[in-house]
Design a protein around this nucleic acid. Structure first.
Length: 286
DNA sequence: GATCTATGTAGAT
DNA sequence: TCTACCTAGATCG
């Protein structure tokens, strides 16, 4: 589930369903039991996301820090709460809603100082208002590491995961293995703007849908139209299937332990990319 | 039922 | 570069 758009969406939903209410906090599975006891009955003041990190504010300098990892889930439902199913690490029960957390890589009690320390490790989050892409650019421009690896580094850009990195590289025709320092600055600026738009669309839609996102009025300024490509993403997990733009089979390779996907024709070796996202978008851009 | 996979990261080697 | 870890659903036999 989780790239940055998921955490931001969850923060919104937590605030919407719980903010201002006293909340029963428990850990049916037991692994968060001590902290849960401490927070039980406290008012939930709000929730915020930064990159893939989620913070739930219970006041008195107490925050629940959640990182979903690769398969964590936070689900919501209307009252009354049902008996826990499976490994429920954290359960929140308020008068208007209840929520279960499963499989998270992290679920810890933080104070604001610990949150501040964590945030210093993270690069700018494209979903954060006023995020400064220049900080990311400094890291990219100074590195000889492949740009596909840099995009996944949360210290460079916070919130980008395996799908957004594959898609944004494709959309700008950048060779995933291009050293960061060979990426032109104007291409980076365009990728950053595209990430902001794609990830915002992801927050709204609750899914990553880069092909249709380009037809989202807020992304392109045009009304949605029928998807001519037949898919939700261009390259992610489409190994061997024809590229939606040129028909070349999508390639894959493991990079830094993660599966990377790209089109060898649209993103040939050494390609420094283009400012306009994909030929298709270039055509429909205003 | 066993095995594989996954939008992730930290820590060891 | 590898391994461990968090869990559930899909796929294999």
């Amino acid at each position: 589930m989780p790239e940055g758009h998921v955490t931001h969406r969850l923060a919104k939903e937590l605030a919407h369903r719980f903010a201002g209410d006293d909340v029963e906090v428990s850990s049916p599975q037991g692994r968060f039991a001590d902290a849960a006891k401490l927070l039980d009955g406290s008012p939930l003041l709000g929730a915020e996301a930064y990159g893939k990190h989620l913070f739930i504010d219970f006041g008195a300098d107490r925050l629940v820090h959640i990182h979903l990892g690769i398969y964590g889930r936070l689900t919501f439902d209307d009252p009354p709460p049902l008996p826990p199913v499976g490994q429920v690490r954290l359960r929140l029960v308020g008068p208007r809603a209840w929520a279960d957390l499963r499989g998270a890589a992290a679920c810890d009690l933080y104070d604001t100082a610990e949150r501040a320390t964590l945030l210093t490790r993270l690069g700018p989050d494209p979903l954060q208002r006023g995020a400064r892409s220049a900080r990311a650019w400094q890291r990219i421009h100074a590195s000889r590491a492949p740009v596909a690896g840099l995009l996944m580094d949360q210290g460079v850009v916070a919130g980008v995961g395996n799908i957004f990195r594959a898609e944004v590289l494709f959309r700008h025709e950048v060779d995933p293995f291009l050293p960061g320092r060979d990426l032109p600055e104007d291409v980076w600026q365009a990728m950053w703007a595209d990430l902001r738009a794609l990830m915002r669309a992801g927050v709204r839609m609750g899914r990553i849908d880069t092909v249709r996102a380009e037809h989202d009025p807020s992304v392109t300024g045009r009304p949605p139209r029928r998807d001519r490509h037949g898919g939700e993403v261009y390259v992610y997990r489409r190994v061997g299937q024809p590229c939606h733009v040129c028909g070349t089979p999508v390639a894959t390779r493991v990079l830094a332990g993660r599966n990377l996907f790209w089109c060898p024709t649209c993103q040939p070796p050494g390609s420094r990319g283009s400012r306009k996202p994909t030929r298709d978008v270039a055509r429909s851009a205003t």
